[in-house]
Design a protein around this nucleic acid. Sequence first.
DNA 1: TAACACTATGTAATAATATAACATTTATAA
DNA 2: TTATAAATGTTATATTATTACATAGTGTTA
Lengths: 127, 127
Amino acid sequence: MQNLSKNQQIIFDLIDKSAEPLKAYAILFNVQKKGIKAPLQVYRALDKLVEIGKIHKIESRNAFIACQNSSCQVSKATAFSICEICEKVTEISSASLSKYLTNFKDKDGMKYSKYNLEFFGLCKKCR
Amino acid sequence: MQNLSKNQQIIFDLIDKSAEPLKAYAILFNVQKKGIKAPLQVYRALDKLVEIGKIHKIESRNAFIACQNSSCQVSKATAFSICEICEKVTEISSASLSKYLTNFKDKDGMKYSKYNLEFFGLCKKCR
DNA sequence: TAACACTATGTAATAATATAACATTTATAA
DNA sequence: TTATAAATGTTATATTATTACATAGTGTTA
Ligand SMILES: [Zn+2]
Ligand SMILES: [Zn+2]
Ligand SMILES: [Zn+2]
Ligand SMILES: [Zn+2]
């Protein structure tokens, strides 16, 4: 497990300590005081962090969240629950779910190398 | 099952006859000859078509595809396979998969009202 | 019919998200 | 050292999506 570069570390730290998923331009705004001035610097760090599984992208929200599993070396099998009211996002770590999806074969018998699953509903607090 | 409005029908027809998912501005370009001139007209029709399950949004691609199930009255339980080379997208209709996911409960016993699953890999042709 | 609610449309402006292109620097390793 | 890959800096631009406001159609019912 390689070390993060300067920009990667700054951006990871911000996402990691955030209670909710962060959007790229919210990140940019927050790290400008640390010398990261342009969108591309943010997107490059995000790309790398996603690639190595330290963060995941919530596709339906265009937002990024730190991995809550400490086991995602790569972002290749991800599942989240998303509250449609408060937008709280939780990474689901269910062995049976990941087993089911990793082994899933379509009707042609094809298996996939990667998946992303997003569940939507109301969180405990919002029901 | 209500009829589609004029703009909705134009845009649905285009997506439905397309071999691949279409992006909003590609749709806009294609329907300008039919009098739909502004992004908002496209997005409004897309929103409605998604709502009634005639099309689905492929979140990881920001693109729209016609429902291939003829059974999705609403876009609330969707699964797709996406080829990472040719970008071919297929809607998966597996009874066991949808049963598994619809009934999935997280560790708090919570069930969700909606999900979207995207599998990634290589299609037959690209392997 | 008239009044109402609801859905859809038209248009302009702008916001939000993401990438291209190019130059330079830093880290890693043969 | 020399080469290679990874990361950075900067400007400009492309792509995706929404706000705001005005207007028109559709169906219901008083
Ligand atoms: Zn994770
Ligand atoms: Zn909530
Ligand atoms: Zn469908
Ligand atoms: Zn393919």
